[in-house]
């Protein structure tokens, strides 16, 4: 393998970068001059959702399709990564991988376990408050995943069992999202168009499932990376 650091390639890349930069700059300037933005529309429509955090309303109601498809993307990433990182019986963190994990030693292990409870508490709070204040399913899921990563580093063998048993969590968000979309369509006639009287409850159900799926998939992806790296030792 020769190094690919040719100067022509570098210049072309620089040119492409600058071109993209110029185009986006022109677009941004034009947008700032022309468009009033969507914030007024969102604020006006917020009452229909009975949710106070506009970002949550956009994620789970106004642009529910985005989040629905995001769950599909995450599911695909997890499926691909876990297929690639080995057959299922050795897919998860093996003791050999654990011994050389970046966090090791009894102090770090203790720290990882100590962190678990406060992190889960923070995640629960974020999930609970997410409908009315900054926070929500994705943040809570990410925090739980971070806690799970710390835990995996602290105790590889047990966590591998947990990661393996929880596989059904991965498609949970997609499933709940689709079910909610269909159920809501029975009432309103449109897929994912939440009716006002149930919007908040529907969104909370979707949020819980989304947080669980995001947490599981991100934690499992970490296990995949650890395992793919530890393979063949």
């Amino acid at each position: 393998m020769k190094r690919r650091h040719h100067s022509l390639e570098g210049w072309l890349a620089l040119l492409a970068g600058l071109l993209a930069l110029g185009l986006v700059a022109a677009g941004v300037l034009a947008y700032q001059a022309d468009s009033p933005g969507l914030q007024d529309l969102v604020v006006r429509s917020l009452a229909q959702t009975r949710v106070d955090n506009p970002v949550t309303a956009v994620l789970l109601d106004f642009r529910g399709y985005d989040t629905l498809l995001e769950m599909g993307v995450l599911l695909l990433a997890w499926l691909t990564a876990s297929t690639l990182s080995g057959p299922s019986h050795e897919r998860l963190v093996r003791p050999s991988a654990r011994l050389e994990s970046p966090v090791d030693g009894s102090v770090d292990r203790m720290l990882a376990r100590l962190l678990l409870a406060p992190l889960l508490l923070v995640a629960a709070y974020l999930l609970w408050r997410g409908t009315d204040a900054p926070g929500g399913a994705l943040q809570a899921g990410a925090v739980v995943a971070a806690a799970a990563v710390a835990w995996q580093l602290g105790s590889g063998a047990e966590s591998s069992v947990t990661v393996r048993r929880g596989y059904w969590l991965a498609p949970a968000a997609l499933g709940v999202f689709l079910l909610a979309g269909v159920a809501v369509a029975v009432v309103t006639g449109t897929f994912l168009n939440h009716p006002q009287f149930a919007a908040r409850e529907v969104m909370m159900a979707i949020e819980v499932a989304t947080a669980a799926s995001v947490a599981y998939i991100l934690a499992a992806l970490f296990a995949c990376v650890l395992n793919a790296g530890g393979n063949g030792k």
Binding site: P102, A146, V149, F222, V225, L226, A228, G229, G230
Partner: peptide
């Protein structure tokens, strides 16, 4: 965590 785990693998 992902990057450091991958670095270890490399």
């Amino acid at each position: 965590a992902l990057l450091l785990a991958a670095l270890r693998g490399i």
